[in-house]
Design a protein around this nucleic acid. Structure first.
Length: 967
RNA sequence: AGGCCCGUAGCUCAGGUGGUUAGAGCGCACGCCUGAUAAGCGUGAGGUCGGCAGUUCAACUCUGCCCGGGCCUACCA
């Protein structure tokens, strides 16, 4: 029968039954309006004191100790911060909802160079130079600057929906923090690990200041290059040749580096180029050692016309003389093997002045040579000192006038002295990239300066070195995977001593006194106590503003002591946070259960905290460490200001809402780098829509659900609900396991797939008929609503850590008197819900159902049916047992067809079939009239005289309805 | 330049110890429904598993090299 026929016949102008249906009803809107909802929700949480209640609720539970790595109090937050903060929030919330007390005390890192720069700029804008601003005023300005950004960042962090103790964060510039940091430093001093050494730093003579790597920019510079002969002590007729672009560093030379991987030869010059406008320094008979690969280049520069190779040369163990030997440079110049030496340019030998280059310094220290033997050849103004005999007071760079920054007399004097010593082989000119000061644009030099260090390899109070203790602590820590452990392990194995002093203004001082004669650090408990008390009261400023005598007291004359005015490396600040954040409240004992930061912090905070804690306590401040990758743009490029692909927090709030950023965070493999852009936000928007609509449908379908309607656990449950509850039981285990392992994505994926595939497309689709049409006391409908209630309870709790705003909205829509979904725990799911036989049975039924839907789809294509209710398929099963199973349930109900007939056999040849299952489906039109209420087409429609246009089930339901209405 | 890590459909991800036609969800296309309606349901099309070479009877899965990307160092005396 064509569709049209009964459509006409079955639409008598009868009663409109719409009112008798139980359609979903809810005030929960389909559209979220996150931009409005989120700030309102946050304000409400503040109002009801949600965080305080969370703490009170959890006070007696086991602690999960998370320690927040402090972001730097400068600049607006962007997507990278969002990911970092949301991940931390997911960790804390999932622990809080699974039986723990998970306090989150957020922090900020406040001291350091970037803030100094900004504040300097502010002063400059007002026409004041840093030198003219009193130190206390400058530090006060830095403090105010940091304060401002803490306020801004706090607002942005809160706006991402992070639950944390925003009322009482920790900040490294708080007076008691500064005192605590100084106290930590003094503990390291007492452990005997702090010593004064020296190190070449980038120094700008023009500005008389050291520069950090970030304060330097590279520009093209024209330099004088020289080839210098270093006579071999044992064979004075032979010279090793080096090449350098900085002749002024020759007085600082203390070694020559070579590479064991390069072949060197001993060469004799035979003739010199003729007809030159000048007399070359090279002479026939000179015996020179250079790398084989570079000999042609060197000889050409030296103007040697012909030469011969006398043989191989092995530099190992060779000792040279300094070219100025006999003029105050009588030390030996050893040969050092170094990986940094190449034969790409130069001579294959590297002039090594440990006071003038980072690599030179490192190789010197690495070869076990003493820091004390590194000379201070250049002073603050870039002038030679008495440790550069013969060149005292000569300037490397001109400091004044229009030529400031240009070469001073030093290079020229050195070259002339080399010529006089018959040590110059050749000279030349080279244009190359050279570091310049960011501010003055003048070239910088490497200059050896006294600095304070923490020794890595000196035995401490526990008889072990800091390196040994740190490595043992690394082995005792859970890093998630071996790769992460290896990464930090190799860093700690090879790192040099910790350089902790900075000649800066904004930070915590190395608050100690050094005896002027002995160079020893004063260790006196009473002095330390006075220092710390003053700092606790007045902050770091107290160190500078208080006369030394007040700290030193009567026992130590102030005139005997140097008050160290350097400040601590800010990494020491953040490395000390564990000391003043953990162990201060009952909810945050030490050590922490978890540190979670970007993977760059293996070099940063993870390491500074580890070293600080090992130096002072002998163990790590954390039990476990997890990392996340970096946020890249959609094309996998790193986000940077210059590329203009940074996603600032305010744009995220405006364009997508924090909830979507949270969903994105929970969707990605955070351990790896994440590509984030429009596409993934659109995708997560779809996920959001699905989850929101699922909650909305649940709210609608559960309208008016009361306890009397709830079907008891021990009732006779339909297979479909037995299966659904089994799935909830399974999911409960998956979600808990995923959250326990910080695998938020696994939880979200499982939940989303459940919502899409099983709940929405199958369960709800099937049960709509019952939900809308059954009378409310029908067991099937009660089972359904009871199950839906269970789904709602779990869905809102499982998703609460991720979708913090939407789940709260849904929860409070259902329970308007509830304070917040976030005060809940994940609901227990009874083990009795586990029902493997129901799961197996449903799997079998759904496989057959898939054949039925396949057959229906062909009919739809052919326009023979529209709705599946137009059909009454015949299902042919080869297997009689399968047929029996299909007959045992209301299979038409599961397939959403008006009727279904199950037969044993192969079925007609043209039937739609699945050979694998031995199932064939023959689609026939449903027979009978269409029920005006349920829209099913059944022969029985019309058999109840009271309701001639209804099926029997619907007639009964309407009778119930009418009876109730009459009451 | 060195160390570590990553590279499976448009997107986000699954793919123990190598073994049948490489999977899921979303998106997309087409269709259905019009009692979740800026919603819901179904069907379908998408991948030389970054590339090349090797080990093997057999590789997305093992090895090497290369390409692309990221983090951290080192920056050329």
């Amino acid at each position: 029968m064509p569709v049209g026929d009964h459509a006409m016949a079955d639409q008598p102008a009868g009663r409109d039954y719409r009112d008798t249906l139980f359609l979903p009803e809810t005030s929960f809107p389909m559209k979220a309006g996150l931009q409005k909802l989120e700030p309102e929700t946050i304000a409400r949480w503040d109002e009801i004191g949600l965080y305080r209640t969370l703490r009170e609720d959890a006070a007696t539970r086991p602690k999960f100790v998370f320690h927040d790595g402090p972001p730097y109090a400068n600049g607006h937050l962007h997507i990278g911060h969002a990911l970092n903060n949301i991940l931390k929030d997911l960790v804390v919330r999932t622990r809080q909802m699974t039986g723990y007390d998970a306090d989150f005390r957020p922090g900020w890192d406040c001291h350091g160079l970037p803030i100094e720069w900004k504040v300097e700029e502010e002063f400059r804008a007002k026409g004041r130079k840093k030198q003219d601003v009193p130190a206390t005023e400058f530090r006060a300005a830095c403090r105010a600057y940091a304060e401002t950004w803490i306020g801004i960042q706090k607002g942005e962090r809160k706006r991402f929906g992070i639950t944390a103790d925003w009322e009482d964060p920790y900040v490294t510039m708080a007076f008691d923090s500064e005192a605590a940091i100084a106290a930590e430093f003094l503990k390291v001093v007492r452990a005997g690990l702090v010593y004064r050494g020296s190190k070449p730093v980038m120094w700008s003579p023009v500005e008389r200041t050291s520069l950090a790597e970030a304060e330097v920019e590279y520009h093209e510079k024209t330099s004088t290059t020289i080839w210098v002969k270093f006579p071999i002590v044992a064979r004075p007729d032979v010279s090793v040749v080096i090449w350098t672009t900085t002749p002024w560093t020759i007085p600082g030379n203390r070694a020559i580096s070579y590479s064991p991987a390069i072949s060197y030869g001993l060469f004799e010059v035979q003739s010199v180029e003729q007809g030159l406008a000048f007399e070359p320094w090279v002479k026939a008979g000179d015996k020179l050692v250079v790398a084989d690969k570079l000999v042609d280049e060197v000889m050409k520069a030296a103007k040697a016309a012909t030469f011969t190779r006398l043989g191989d040369f092995d530099p190992a163990g060779v000792v040279c003389a300094h070219p100025f030997r006999g003029k105050g440079y009588d030390f030996d110049v050893p040969m050092l093997a170094g990986d940094h030496v190449t034969d790409d340019a130069g001579t294959g030998f590297v002039h090594t002045a440990p006071g003038h280059g980072a690599e030179d310094y490192l190789i010197w220290v690495a070869r076990g040579l003493s820091q004390a033997d590194i000379p201070f050849t250049v002073d603050e103004d870039g002038r030679y000192t008495k440790e550069a005999p013969g060149f005292e007071n000569l300037e490397i760079l001109q400091l004044e006038g229009k030529n400031a920054g240009k070469d001073g007399p030093a290079n020229k004097a050195v070259i002339e002295a080399l010529v006089a010593a018959n040590a110059l082989l050749a000279r030349g000119i080279l244009k190359h990239q050279y570091p310049h000061s960011w501010r003055s644009k003048a070239p910088v030099i490497f200059r050896n300066t006294p600095q304070w260090f923490i020794a890595m390899d000196k035995p401490g109070p526990r008889g072990k070195t800091l390196r040994e203790e740190a490595l043992a602590a690394i082995d005792a820590t859970d890093w998630g995977h071996e790769g992460a452990r290896n990464r930090i392990r190799s860093m700690v194995e090879t790192r040099p001593d910790w350089l902790i002093s900075r000649q800066r203004a904004w930070g915590v001082p190395l608050a100690m006194f050094v005896h002027k004669d002995t160079g020893e650090i004063l260790k006196d408990d009473a002095v330390d106590a006075r220092i710390l008390a003053a700092m606790k009261e007045k902050g770091a400023d107290a160190w500078y503003s208080t006369p030394a005598a007040e700290f030193l007291g009567p026992d130590h004359p102030a005139s005997d002591y140097e008050k160290v005015e350097d400040i601590l490396d800010v990494w020491f600040d953040s490395g000390s946070t564990h000391a003043f954040v953990l162990g201060q409240r009952p909810s945050l004992p030490r050590p922490a259960d978890l540190y979670l930061e970007g993977s760059d912090q293996h070099r940063g905070w993870f390491q500074s905290s580890l070293l600080e804690s090992c130096a002072t306590r002998g163990h790590a401040p954390y039990k476990a460490v997890r990392t996340h990758g970096f946020t890249l743009d959609e094309d996998g490029r790193k986000m940077s200001k210059s590329l203009g692909n940074v996603l600032p927090a305010d744009k995220l709030f405006k364009d997508y809402g924090a909830e979507l950023v949270r969903l994105v965070t929970a969707s990605v493999d955070y351990e790896d780098d994440q590509r984030i852009g429009k596409t993934i936000f659109e995708q997560c928007g779809e996920t959001y829509r699905k989850l929101r609509n699922t909650m909305r449908y649940l709210l609608g379908a559960l309208a008016g659900f009361d306890e009397a309607e709830r079907l008891p656990d021990d009732a006779e449950w339909p297979l479909l609900e037995r299966w659904l509850r089994h799935r909830l039981w399974e999911l409960d285990g998956q979600v808990r396991a995923a959250y326990a392992a910080f695998k938020f994505r696994d939880a979200l994926t499982a939940i989303v797939e459940f919502c899409n595939v099983e709940f929405s497309a199958f369960y709800v689709d099937v049960r709509k008929d019952s939900l809308y049409c059954d009378r409310p006391d029908a067991l099937r409908r009660r089972a359904c609503r009871t199950a839906l209630d269970a789904v709602f309870e779990r869905l809102t709790a499982w998703l609460a850590p991720i979708m913090v705003f939407t789940t709260d909205e849904a929860w409070r829509t259902r329970y308007p008197d509830a304070a917040s979904v976030h005060l809940r725990q994940l609901p227990e799911t009874p083990a009795s819900w586990r029902d493997e036989s129901a799961a197996a049975e449903m799997a079998r039924l759904r496989a057959v159902r898939a054949v039925v839907t396949g057959a229906l789809e062909i009919e739809r294509r052919e326009k023979r049916i529209g709705s599946s209710l137009d059909a009454a398929p015949v299902v042919w099963c080869r297997d009689a047992a399968l047929a029996e199973a299909l007959r045992a349930v209301d299979f038409a109900d599961l397939c959403i067809t008006s009727a279904i007939v199950v037969e044993v056999g192969a079925g007609p040849a043209d039937a739609f079939r699945d050979e694998g299952q031995g199932v064939a489906v023959e689609v026939k039109p449903a027979l009978g009239r269409k029920c005006a209420r349920s829209r099913r087409i059944l022969p029985e429609v019309g058999t109840d005289p009271r309701y001639p246009d209804l099926s029997l089930r619907d007639a009964d339901a309407v009778a119930w309805w009418d009876a109730r209405a009459a009451r």
